[in-house]
Amino acid sequence: MKPAPFDYARPADWPAALALLAAGARPVAGGQSLGPMLNLRLALPERVADLRHLPDYAGVSMQGETVRIGAGTTHAAIEDGVVPGRLGEILAGVARRIAYRPVRNRGTIGGSFAHADPAADWVAVLPALPGHAIALGPQGERRIPLAEFVLGVFETALRSDELLRALELPALPAATRFGHWKFCRKPGEFSKATACVLALPGAVPTAVLAALDAAPLVIADASALLADPTAEAARITATLALDDPWRAALARTALRHAAEAVR
């Protein structure tokens, strides 16, 4: 339960952080996923690069109609309403159900997305939203659509020489409707099945089904799911190769409940 030895570096700016990354350092943000992995010796980095002191790493800014959320913004800050408007309301509701408050006080939205645990809450919700992940590499910033960021279990579109710097999302109209449902036997434990549905006024609704031991399933057109949640949830779940009947039942239930919860 004690980590193997590693060195610690605290880059003061982004070029220094990228240089450390290029030299093989493992980024650490809130340490709420990497910390347990270090203690359990599942991760054995020679050096960690602490991102928490980078300029603008945490915090939210408005750029016209776009909300830019620093990757280092904590779950707790989002729970407490640091993101404005309807988008903030939706994200706050999700954040409040991640882990426990002491974990949310340190854990970050960027760290969670970059970690890409298939059962993580941001992994289950961000792909339903319009917007981009902003990756920073030696060549500058690159924009990755949120729906295309998570590629698999603990696997993302980030290249090995890139850091996740921020998320950019449009400020959602007040009439945006959202439904979210996840199954945990105990508040704060990792979900066994999560789904969400997002309906922007005048646009095709989108949905995500996650905690599948695979990349989240992004449903680009969830109109049928909204029209007939029970039948469509069953149809979608049947297309997945879920070997355990209980998993299939939970996935189906999550999709149906999320669609029925849309408001």
Binding site: P3, Y8, D50
Partner: peptide, 16 residues
């Protein structure tokens, strides 16, 4: 409490 908010002291390593 770390910087005014509850946190897990087992998940903050010395450098941080």
């Amino acid at each position: 409490e770390v910087d005014g908010a509850p946190a897990r002291s087992c998940l903050i390593h010395a450098g941080a």
